[in-house]
Design a protein around this nucleic acid. Structure first.
Length: 343
DNA sequence: AAGGCGTGGGA
DNA sequence: TTCCCAAGCCT
């Protein structure tokens, strides 16, 4: 059984053997070698896991599965309910696309089982299509996420910086992806990246691929993957309005597909103003304090302005009971502002 | 193709 | 505190 073989098979064998003993147990996953979870669960977990930690996803995944156990039930849901259930997880376009994709799949009569078919779902890109095809449908697919980029760039000592190195990384990943068990292989690569081949201080002594690892041979595996320098995040200032009356607060819904689009929110300015102090509020508004919040591409310093008792809101919105504010599905930045206003 | 798009946790 | 980062996608 240990007949001479291609080096690429050697890596997959070592990794799969390691995975048999070391696979993380996660709510959306079946143990190695057992039948895969339903495509719905695999897809839902992959969408939630984009740029998001397993610890953050776990409670959301449980709540979604409990409330919408099948793709058909999710397809029939009100989008507003899904958005509210997504609140706090971030990247809200994922929730908008989730509903659209669920309806697409339900109308179609089931999930596509090929990468190309999966790519047609809104919110499904190269990574998720490959992951679902491999994990849920047992297809051979080249699954490349940030973990795989790290593992593979070290394994092959790919010195080209990201993102330009993506093509070389994909080719290298393809070369070690086995024909069978490619779902387990993909999950094994991700587990290896999450627990052993970590961004800092990789635990090479525990790594099943250490004998094959070019970066390890060089002596400084943590220098891979090489990344382009990142830009500094600008600081924006903005205001949120706390307009309360009879135990209720005035909430609006942000429209469009831009920042926090589709989510409930406190009314306010656009945060686009570089300078604070513009549009000074009427003197009878009270300064409710300031919260800081970091977004992907800018930091926000948000001042909460508390309205006088007789203030009248303008435009579309709704009065929301303050004692049930937790159910409003406010994005974290507004949850912070509300907490500040209430202290 | 480079930038928009959230959030929380760890070092 | 600050920085980096986590199962990316879309335009």
């Amino acid at each position: 059984m240990d007949s001479p073989c291609h080096p690429e098979e050697r890596e997959a064998r070592r990794l799969l053997a390691w995975y048999d003993l070391n696979a993380r147990r996660l709510p959306w996953r079946s143990p190695p070698g057992t039948p895969p979870p339903e495509p719905y669960r695999v897809w839902l977990s992959e969408v939630m896991l984009q740029q998001t930690t397993t610890a953050a996803v776990a409670p959301y995944f449980a709540r979604f599965i409990d409330r919408w156990p099948t793709i058909g039930e999710l397809a029939a849901a009100d989008e507003a309910d899904v958005m509210a259930a997504w609140a706090g997880l971030g990247y809200y376009s994922r929730a908008r696309n989730l509903v659209a994709a669920a309806r697409f799949v339900a109308r179609r009569g089931g999930f596509p089982n090929s990468e190309a078919g999966l790519r047609e779902l809104p919110g499904v890109g190269a990574y998720i299509a490959a992951a679902v095809a491999a994990i849920a449908f047992g297809r051979r697919a080249v699954v490349v996420d940030a973990n795989v980029e790290r593992v593979v760039s070290r394994l092959f000592a790919i010195a080209e910086p990201l993102p330009a190195a993506r093509k070389a990384i994909r080719t290298a990943t393809d070369s070690i992806t086995p024909a069978e068990s490619s779902g387990d292989f993909a999950q094994a690569m991700m587990d290896l990246g999450a627990t052993i081949c970590t961004p800092r201080a990789p635990r090479c002594l525990l790594c099943p691929l250490a004998p094959d690892c070019a970066a390890r041979a060089e002596g400084d595996p943590a220098r891979y993957p090489v990344k382009a320098a990142k830009k500094t995040k600008p600081l924006r200032r903005g205001r949120a309005l706390w307009i309360a009356r009879n135990g209720a607060v005035w909430l609006v819904r942000r429209d469009g597909e831009t920042l926090l689009g589709g989510m409930r929110a406190l009314p306010g300015d656009g945060w686009s103003a570089q300078a604070d102090g513009e549009g000074t509020p009427p003197g009878d508004w009270r300064d409710g304090g300031t919260v800081r919040h970091g977004f992907t591409h800018f930091d926000l310093e948000l001042t909460v302005l508390v309205a006088p008792e007789d203030a009248t809101p303008e435009g579309a919105g709704e009065w929301w009971p303050i004692d049930r504010l937790g159910e409003a599905g406010l994005p974290t930045v507004f949850a912070k502002a509300a907490r500040r206003a209430l202290t």
